[in-house]
Simulated assay, not measured.
Amino acid sequence: MVKIAENIIVGISIGDLNGVGSEIVLKTFEDNRMLELCTPVIFANVKIMSYLKKVYELTLNFHGIDSLDQLVVGKINVLNVWKEPVNIEFGKTDNEVGKYAIKSFFAATKALKESKVDVLLTAPINKYNIQSEEFKFPGHTDYLAKEFNENALMFMIHENLRVGLLTDHVPVNEVAKHLNEKLIAQKVKIVNDTLKQDFRIEKPKIAVLGLNPHAGDNGVIGKEDEEIIKPALKKIYDSGILVFGPYSADSFFGSNQYKQYDAVLAVYHDQGLIPFKTMSFGNGVNYTAGLSKIRTSPDHGTAFDIAGKNKASESSFREALYLAIDMYNNRNEYKELTNNPLIASK
C-alpha cells in the first residue's frame, strides 16, 4: 500500500526526560498542521507527557494508548511504555531517568523493526546515564546497527550540506588504527546508495577528507593518506562510484569546495562535525544511513543548561521530521522505479 501524508506513522523515542527532548517534541506538534504530514506515536507515558505539556504551557491534546493496535491516525498518540511516575529534575544527570530514555528507545526500535511505525525519530539521550548491561553503546547509531544487523553510518544533513563519518565515536588517538580499505569501501558505498535512494541523486559525487594535515603532504606528514586512503579511493572510483580525494580538511569547507559534491566523508568525528555544526547548528539533522529503515534525530544533545526553561528551539527536531518523511517517500519511489518485474513476478 502506498501511504499518503498523515498515514505515515512516525515513532518518537522521548530521550532524557531531564533534558530538552520532551520540549522540542511537544513544541513541534503544537502546530496542528504537522498532523497533516504524519501521525506521531510518542513512546513514553501519557501522564508524564500531560505534565510536561503544562510545564511548557502548550495546548496540544494526546491520545493515550497501551498498544499500537489502538493507534488513531491524525492524533498525537502516546504509547504507555511504562505506568509508574518518573521523578523529573530538569538539567540533572540521573541514572534512573536514563533507564526510561532507553525503555522508550528500545520500544520504539522494536516497533520500527516490526514495521508498526514507518520511521523513527529519536530525541537526545545522555550517553553517560544510559549505560547498563542492556545498553553498552556510545549512542543510537551503534545500537541500531546491531539490532538491524546492518552497517550504519552517521550522516549529518542540512539542506545541500551532507557530511558522513568514516569513524564516529572513536578516540582521536585510535582513528588511524581503524582505517583500512574495507571500511572505506563500505562507508563510501553506504553514502552512494543513500544519495541515490533517499535523496534521488542519480550520479552522486562524493568527497573524502584526508586524515593528516594537508592530507599528509605526499607522506611528509603521516603516511595513512598515501598508503590507505588514496589506493582505496582509486579502487572505488574504478568500480564506478564517483569518489574523490583525499582532500585537505583545513580549507575544504571554508573555501566552499564542499559545494562541488553531493556529500563529504570525514575521517573522524570532530573533523566533520565541527564545520557542519558551525554552519548549520540548530537546523541540522542526524540521519542513520545504511539501515533498511529510516531514523533521524536533531543535531544537538540534551541541552541540560536550558532544560525546563521553555527556551529550547524545536527547529532541528522539526527538520528531522520533515527529512524522515521525505526520505520515506523517496525510498519507496526509488524501490518502485528500480523494481525488477521479472523478480517481482516470481
Rank of each mutant, 00 (worst) to 15 (best):
Thr302Val: 14
Val243Ile: 04
Gly290Trp: 13
Thr278Met: 08
Val243Gln: 06
Pro231Cys: 12
Asp250Arg: 06
Tyr247Ser: 00
Gly254Phe: 01
Lys293Val: 07
Ala289Trp: 00
His269Glu: 11
Thr278Gln: 04
Ala232Trp: 14
Thr302Ile: 13
Ile274Gln: 10
Lys234His: 09
Gly301Cys: 08
Asn283Thr: 02
Asp262Lys: 13
Val285Ile: 05
Asp299Ser: 08
Lys277Trp: 05
Val267Asn: 12
Asn283Leu: 02
His269Phe: 09
Tyr268Cys: 07
Ser313Glu: 10
Gly301Ile: 11
Tyr258Asp: 03
Thr288His: 05
Asp250Cys: 05
Lys259Thr: 15
Tyr237Lys: 15
Asn310Phe: 15
Ser255Leu: 13
Tyr258Trp: 15
His300Ile: 02
Ala266Met: 11
Leu265Pro: 14
Gly290Ala: 04
Gly245Val: 09
Pro275Cys: 02
His269Ile: 07
Asn310Ala: 15
Ala303Val: 07
His300Met: 02
Asp250Val: 08
Ala307Trp: 10
Asp270Cys: 11
Gly308Val: 00
Lys311Phe: 14
Lys234Pro: 07
Ser248Cys: 07
Ser248Lys: 01
Glu314Asn: 06
Asn286Ala: 05
Asp299Cys: 07
Pro275Leu: 03
Asn283Lys: 11
Val267Ser: 10
Lys234Asp: 13
Gly240Asp: 07
Tyr258Thr: 00
Tyr268Ser: 08
Ala249Pro: 12
Lys311Glu: 15
Thr278Cys: 03
Lys309Glu: 11
Leu291Phe: 05
Asp238Ala: 14
Ile236Trp: 15
Lys230Phe: 13
Ser280His: 01
Asp250Gln: 06
Asp262Val: 09
Ala307Val: 05
Thr288Pro: 01
Arg295Cys: 01
Gly245Arg: 05
Leu273Met: 12
Ile274Ser: 12
His300Val: 01
Gly282Phe: 01
Asn256His: 04
Gln260Ile: 11
Met279Gly: 15
Pro246Ile: 09
Thr296Ala: 02
Lys259Glu: 14
Phe252Thr: 15
Tyr287Leu: 03
Gly272Pro: 15
Tyr247His: 04
Val264His: 14
Lys259Ile: 14
Phe304Lys: 10
Asp250Tyr: 04
Gly240Arg: 09
Asp250Ser: 06
Ser251Phe: 02
Lys234Phe: 10
Ile274Arg: 10
Ile306Pro: 06
Arg295Lys: 13
Ala249His: 04
Ile306His: 07
Gly254Asn: 12
Ser313Met: 03
Ile241Thr: 03
Phe304Thr: 08
Ser251Cys: 05
Asn256Pro: 01
Ser255Gln: 10
Tyr287Met: 02
Ile274Glu: 05
Asp299Gln: 08
Asn256Ile: 04
Gly301Gln: 10
Phe253Ala: 12
Ile241Tyr: 12
His300Ser: 01
Val243Arg: 06
Lys277Cys: 04
